[in-house]
Simulated scan of single mutants.
Amino acid sequence: MSSLALPSRPLSLARNVISTPNAYFWTTPIILALVVFLALWDAPGLIRDFQISRKPLVLENGDVQNGRCTTRKAIFTDCEARLVYSYGGRNYDTEVEVMFVDFHTGDYETGLVISADHPELATISLGLDMLWNRIITLTVFVVLLGGMSLGTIFLGLRIWRVNSQLRRPAMLTPVPVEVTAFDRKRGILSITYNDKIAADKTGRSAYTRMKKGEEPLIVGQANGKAIGLAVRHGNTALPVLLDARLQRVELTDDERSAALAPMARQQERAPALIEEPRRSASIWKRLQVFLGMLLLIVIGAAGFWLWYITSSTTPFQSPGMDINNLMPAPLNEWGCEQLKKRFGQDRAPFGCVADDFTSWK
């Protein structure tokens, strides 16, 4: 791989040769807003329940109304309820909502708990049982999402700092970089490259945009990836990918010609950044994938149904009730018989209920 012979004097680079990905401008505020929303939505309830947990008092005559738990993504559960109770000659009416991670199936049992010192603070016993679960869940969400947003802010500031440094002349050191991704849209060539080849590699990735007619200075290929030539500008954190005509470096025309002359033959052999045509699957292949996924869903639903009617700890388990209700009449009847053998003393679940909506059919 030929080395680029640049003048042995400090050189400056063009403006904005390191670009900020457009996604940074909309993902960062969205993630930050999500962090704030989670904190404002869940933190007050956690603080309330932590206070209650220090001196809890279970009210046997308390009324838990409209209690409902919803499970999302199989493990994320949020429960809400209206709490109506009387204590110390005063009546209270409040609503609570808790979120936690659980692999539970079926219904939850809960009661009404208040703070003995502050009876206006009330919650459901399930919220106290899952208190540390909730604290850890919220902490993980805030740390992960907050870390992501802070990471994008840090990278954006690094790019801004590097671009400001590039305008000041400094010694340039040519280094090879790996082109990891590129995209051409509306005459703009967007390139992501990684500093992972040079002896003093940093492992950092950078992103740049080239206008119509500009191409990167490609000098080879390795492991199916194009190798571009970049320069380190003094002690800046990110290398700058050069263009094929060296317009990004402030040189005279004679200096550009002299620098590019030894590399002319190598550039002729270097691969061009040409997007490979996207192969679309045939209709038969797509049909096979669809039927395969459908078969997996059917097998999974059938397995879940068998578990529900033979092993579930409660007949009121969703989606077990829904699957049983959708089964053909013979299978539905057999499933209801299995459930009735184990839960016949309780009211019938959906899918096995008679016309009175209570007894078994």
Rank of each mutant, 00 (worst) to 15 (best):
M1F: 13
S3D: 10
L4A: 00
P7W: 03
L11T: 06
L13I: 14
L13R: 10
A14G: 11
F25R: 14
F25A: 14
T27Q: 15
V35M: 12
V35W: 09
V36M: 15
V36W: 12
F37G: 09
W41Q: 12
I47W: 06
Q51G: 01
Q51W: 13
I52W: 11
L59M: 04
L59T: 08
E60P: 02
G62T: 07
N66Q: 09
T71E: 10
I75T: 15
T77K: 01
T77M: 02
C79R: 01
A81G: 09
Y87T: 01
R90Y: 00
Y92T: 02
D93C: 12
D102V: 02
F103E: 14
G106E: 03
Y108V: 05
T110I: 03
L112I: 02
V113C: 08
S115W: 02
H118F: 05
H118E: 09
E120P: 02
A122W: 13
A122H: 09
I124M: 12
G127H: 07
G127L: 04
D129G: 08
I135S: 12
V140C: 06
I153V: 15
I153H: 02
F154S: 09
W160G: 05
W160M: 15
W160H: 13
R167T: 13
R167G: 12
R167W: 07
P169M: 06
P169G: 10
M171S: 10
M171P: 00
L172C: 00
L172W: 01
P174C: 03
P176D: 05
A181H: 15
F182A: 05
R186A: 12
R186D: 14
G187L: 04
I188F: 01
L189A: 04
S190A: 15
T192V: 09
N194S: 02
D195W: 08
T202S: 11
S205C: 01
A206D: 03
Y207R: 11
T208G: 10
T208R: 14
E214W: 00
E215W: 08
L217F: 10
N223V: 00
K225E: 03
L229R: 10
L229G: 05
V231I: 07
H233R: 07
H233F: 09
N235W: 00
N235S: 15
T236W: 07
A237E: 08
L241Q: 06
A244W: 00
R245M: 05
T252C: 01
T252W: 02
T252S: 14
E255H: 07
E255V: 04
A258Q: 15
A259G: 06
L260Q: 06
A261I: 07
Q266Y: 00
Q267Y: 08
E268A: 14
L273Q: 06
E275H: 11
P277V: 00
P277N: 09
P277H: 07
R279A: 08
S280Q: 13
V289W: 13
L295H: 00
L296E: 06
V298T: 10
I299H: 03
G300L: 04
A301H: 09
Y308E: 07
I309N: 09
I309H: 11
Q317S: 13
M321H: 08
D322K: 12
N324L: 15
L326R: 06
P328R: 01
L331V: 14
K341T: 11
R342W: 05
F343Q: 10
F343R: 12
A348M: 06
D355E: 10
S359H: 13
W360G: 08
W360H: 04
